[in-house]
């Protein structure tokens, strides 16, 4: 009998001795967390963002076919916390976001007053965007001439490739000169809601109906063709030459 008590005492002693030296710190649950982020301006089920508390980020995976240009997020945060921008604040002009970049950040302020910031990342699940060269031999660029003094003149060319968006509002095509300066956008002269591999352009010189880009181009120049299609961009390696005659 005595032995049991002895043993018990020993265990208790050891226990207390251990608790003195072995402490695992207690981390209270944070009061300033973003708990749910979903995009609601879609048909059916909202798109839920993946929240990573460790690196303070939210990632939204957007399907390409929706071709969204604006996002309407609904947010949930820790009990008692506030968030800015508030839930429901639109994220506008996604095309600009994709092309020029922008930091979108949310600050969650907990009851205790501490602020945790989250950065939004948007990944678009979009097929590859590729373009075929117009000029196949860089030493001999395909050349287009347009007579600025003629009664009417025009030239046209076609850009072939893959992964072009079906809605032309998602597409912007520009000419890029050797200094990487962009001219345009070019008017896309063919609606290709069914053919996603071809875009046609025509540049026209005719009284007050001339293509806007003509006023900005120099008399001669070498240009790569760059296409922005929703969240992606592709540029030809080789250039075409455009000559404005009698400019």
């Amino acid at each position: 009998m005595k032995k049991i008590y002895q043993r018990l005492a020993a265990v208790l002693l050891i226990f207390s001795a251990c608790t003195k030296t072995e402490t695992i710190p207690f981390t209270p649950e944070a009061d300033n967390q973003l708990l749910e982020y979903k995009i609601v301006n879609v048909q059916g089920t909202p798109i839920y963002g993946a929240i990573n508390q460790a690196d303070s980020s939210v990632t939204i995976y957007l399907p390409f076919y929706l071709q969204l240009t604006i996002l309407e997020p609904e947010l949930k945060v820790s009990d008692g916390a506030t968030i800015t921008p508030a839930s429901g604040t639109m994220i506008e002009d996604l095309l600009d976001f994709f092309r020029n970049g922008r930091t979108i950040k949310y600050n969650v302020k907990g009851k205790a007053g501490n602020v945790k910031g989250y950065t939004l990342h948007i990944q678009v699940q979009q097929p590859d965007l590729t373009v075929k060269e117009i000029t196949t031999d860089p030493a001999n660029p395909v050349t287009y001439n347009i007579d600025m003094k003629a009664f009417f003149d025009s030239f046209s060319f076609t850009l072939n490739g893959a992964g072009f968006a079906s809605n032309l509002d998602m597409i912007k095509v520009v000419l890029v000169d050797e200094q990487n300066k962009e001219y345009g956008p070019l008017d896309i002269s063919q609606f290709n809601t069914t053919d996603l591999t071809t875009l046609s352009f025509s540049i026209t010189q005719y009284k007050n109906m001339s293509s806007a880009i003509l006023a900005t181009l120099p008399a001669t120049g070498l240009y790569k063709v760059r296409i922005y299609s929703y969240a992606k961009v592709a540029t030809t390696q080789n250039s075409i030459r455009i000559n404005l005659l009698n400019k």
């Binding site: 008017d187 896309i188 002269s189 063919q190 609606f191 290709n192 809601t193 069914t194 053919d195 025509s202 026209t204």
Partner: peptide
């Protein structure tokens, strides 16, 4: 609206047939 056979390009006034329809 998807219910025709050509687009009329309002940039350059050309009838462009809808492909693959």
């Amino acid at each position: 609206n998807g219910l025709g056979w050509f687009f009329y390009s309002l940039n350059n006034h050309i009838c462009v047939p809808v492909r693959n329809r």
